[in-house]
Design a protein around this nucleic acid. Structure first.
Lengths: 240, 240
DNA sequence: CATGAATGGACTAATCTCGAACCATTGAAG
DNA sequence: CTTCAATGGTTCGAGATTAGTCCATTCATG
């Protein structure tokens, strides 16, 4: 089998050039709804610093997204790069296309990665002593998803899931979880938001939060597994 | 609280320049023992492709590691970049220095991240149906650690832990796990390899493998938590 | 309606990074 | 002892990326 673990360590140092990576990152922030439609990105000078790239490269990326119709850039005071993207109504062919673009092995990889990350984050959080504020944020995010209008559902669902990793206080974990979510965004966005599915998911979300608040790592793990397997089953159903 | 999740998404696109990232990556492969002392790195032309950088940049990184005494580079056929690094005998002040270099919040971040990753990977693996070959690899790696000479202990311990993520078949998960391990390598390398600790760890390793082979995600999770908390406690003890 | 602060827009010189081609060394095989 | 394949060593021009500087536009405020 040669040198198996070399693969994990001697992997590419960078995914592409700075421009491409920046476009990808911004696009994900938009598609995840982290920057909501109508809201604007931070000023170029700030954003360039946050992304660790030069303003020139950032502007090229913003320009590309503007040309692609995701952003509306306005000059002058109170100007900025405004998100005009609205998540398209899901169609089954979008899902097929998304799956075909990534390939079956990439799909399994992404789902496995997400399962590991979300289980790990949930149980770590459940094992922590949470402050009242942390509990408040978690329950608030839960309520947000469950009260969401269909148009806002995916965005708030993402926010809920990311909150779990974020509340552990570990930036590394939060980053990795966001990364795991990114890998399946296009797939999730292509799944229709249907009543029964949402009710099902809502109950599972509640189970996750209750287990975390009760300090029950095992319960949290099981709830996450059940929830994510439900999503995976939905995907398979739409592909079959 | 502003825009909490922007932090996770609008984080730096790249950690530094290609040269620095490459030096770091190679150094970790050496320190983790993935390329054992006396072994050589892949040929420059191959390695550059694997790392996704140009040969020129790779050579600068190799040159830096050569100057720093980690590599011995020989020309001609059967030449290459040979690892000459030997893990130094751990001293308490090394541990303190390593901790001071990263800072207390980074330490907590790294430990939390590692806990989440390893728990997630172990339970995912436990939930899979394993082939005979996979079972063989896992038990083989376990035996390797438990039979290890003190000088090889850390290297084989790393190999064992990484195997778990690797066996899930998810490259993303394997990469992230390797990353989590990297964050604590310097700390682990600074902990003396003592008999009682090793016996303790060995029993925990066995518990992890048994739970995985028996298809018991919950048991796997608990075994990992116990093991990693033991390591964290050791760290605290040496720092106190 | 004039001002000024906050923003995007544009340019430049320096540096990093790359791909590609070619050179130099080594040592096993014939 | 000649050959030659596998390896590291070197160079060069093109393109990517950066930091810094200055310009242009907008609009709330006075």
């Amino acid at each position: 089998m040669g040198e198996p673990q070399l693969v994990a360590l001697l992997r590419p140092v960078r995914a592409g050039n700075a421009f491409e990576e920046t476009v990808e990152r911004l696009l994900q922030a938009i598609k995840l709804g982290v920057v909501a439609p109508g809201a604007k990105l931070p000023p170029e000078r700030e954003l360039a610093v946050q992304l660790g790239i030069s303003r020139v490269t950032l502007r090229e990326a913003i320009r590309a997204l503007q040309d692609a119709g995701y952003l509306d850039v306005r000059r002058g005071r109170y100007g900025g790069a405004f998100v005009v993207y609205e998540p398209p109504r899901p169609r089954q062919e979008d899902l097929r296309r998304a799956v075909n673009e990534m390939g079956p092995s990439d799909l399994a990889d992404a789902l496995t990665f997400r399962m590991a990350m979300e289980c790990g984050a949930a149980q770590v959080l459940a094992a922590m002593e949470l402050t009242g504020e942390q509990r408040g944020i978690l329950t608030r995010r839960l309520a947000d998803v469950n009260d969401a209008a269909p148009a806002d559902y995916r965005r708030l669902d993402t926010a809920f899931h990311l909150s779990i990793a974020e509340l552990t206080g570990s930036p590394l974990l939060a980053s990795a979880s966001a990364d795991a979510r990114l890998r399946v965004t296009d797939l999730l966005n292509a799944i229709p938001v249907l009543g029964p599915n949402i009710d099902h998911a809502a109950a599972q979300h509640v189970a996750m939060v209750e287990a975390i608040l009760r300090g029950d790592p095992e319960g949290a793990r099981k709830a996450v597994v059940e929830h994510l397997e439900g999503t995976a089953a939905l995907l398979r159903a739409f592909l079959a």
